[in-house]
């Protein structure tokens, strides 16, 4: 690791001011991606601002038809929370499948979103559920939040405080995971909320994306066969040692259909 100055503020205000003070300063949440990046010297922030001591970033609650999850909620907390299991079971299931249990005991929702790894699970849920990302400055819609490869709409001194998920009528997430890394080779989140259907794909391209032709078909008929012939062109998809772009293109249709089936069965 390159040397850095470490701060552990107790309030959001202090954290934002510390991030503002030094160019390149970085917020640290669970650290399950940032610590490995620091160890490999892939990142060299002069200042680390640990968000672990800020109580206002915690908590999970249901408010009417919205599930609100604090940015520092650990994956294991989300997976086990009654509010999530009853409100959006697909989200609890997704959280239970991130990394391994030790990673889930540290990794956070806010950290995963701010990192925006192209193969992370949470971005697919946030985009398909049309969630709103709340920060210390504003509220950002999911469609405007994810900008590209590990890039988001967040400003350098902007901190995610919570994510508000509207409760869907039905939803499911199916991941075709790499057995070693547990990251998605292709992961598809399908959600129907207030009569609108959204389909989000992770793992397949440089950034999570929606498949609007599938959404249109599913809005007409919410059934796996409705999207059997919808293919995402391979030319914008990833090719790597795990899977070719053509394979991922085929996989998206297969996994999306499985997600629809799962959403229909409510499991």
């Amino acid at each position: 690791m390159y040397a850095f100055a470490y701060h552990r503020p107790a309030t959001l205000k202090q954290a934002a001011s510390l991030l503002r003070k030094t160019e390149g300063a970085k917020a640290l949440s669970g650290g399950q991606s940032l610590i490995p990046a620091l160890k490999m010297r892939l990142a060299d922030p002069p200042v680390l601002v640990d968000l672990g001591g800020i109580a206002e970033l915690r908590g999970i609650r249901l408010e009417g038809t919205t599930l609100i999850i604090g940015a520092m909620a650990r994956h294991a907390e989300v997976a086990a929370a009654k509010e999530v299991m009853t409100g959006i079971p697909a989200l609890a299931q997704l959280a239970a499948g991130i990394g391994d249990r030790q990673v889930r005991n540290l990794g956070t929702l806010g950290g995963a979103l701010a990192n925006n790894d192209p193969a992370a699970d949470y971005p697919a849920a946030v985009l398909a559920l049309d969630a709103v990302i709340h920060t210390n400055k504003r509220a950002i819609s999911a469609d405007r939040f994810f900008k590209g490869l590990m890039e988001t709409a967040l400003k350098p001194d902007e901190i995610i405080t919570a994510v508000a998920f509207p409760l869907p009528t039905r939803a499911a997430y199916v991941k075709f995971r790499n057995p070693a890394s547990r990251y998605a080779i292709v992961g598809v989140f399908v959600a129907e909320t207030a009569g609108r259907v959204r389909v989000a794909v992770t793992g397949a391209a440089s950034c999570v994306f929606r498949v609007k032709p599938m959404e249109k078909k599913l809005a007409g008929k919410f059934a796996p066969e409705a999207i059997a012939k919808v293919r995402v062109a391979a030319d914008k998809l990833n090719s790597d040692i795990h899977a070719s772009a053509e394979y991922r293109s085929h996989l998206i249709t297969v996994i999306a259909q499985r997600a629809v089936t799962a959403a229909l069965s409510g499991k």
């Binding site: 470490y6 552990r8 640290l28 650290g31 399950q32 610590i35 490995p36 640990d50 672990g52 001591g53 294991a76 249990r101 030790q102 990673v103 005991n105 540290l106």
Partner: peptide, 15 residues
């Protein structure tokens, strides 16, 4: 009370 990987967290985070 939760199992974590001690090589993937700073000692400072355990304050």
């Amino acid at each position: 009370g939760h199992a974590v990987k001690a090589c993937n967290i700073l000692a400072a985070q355990a304050q």
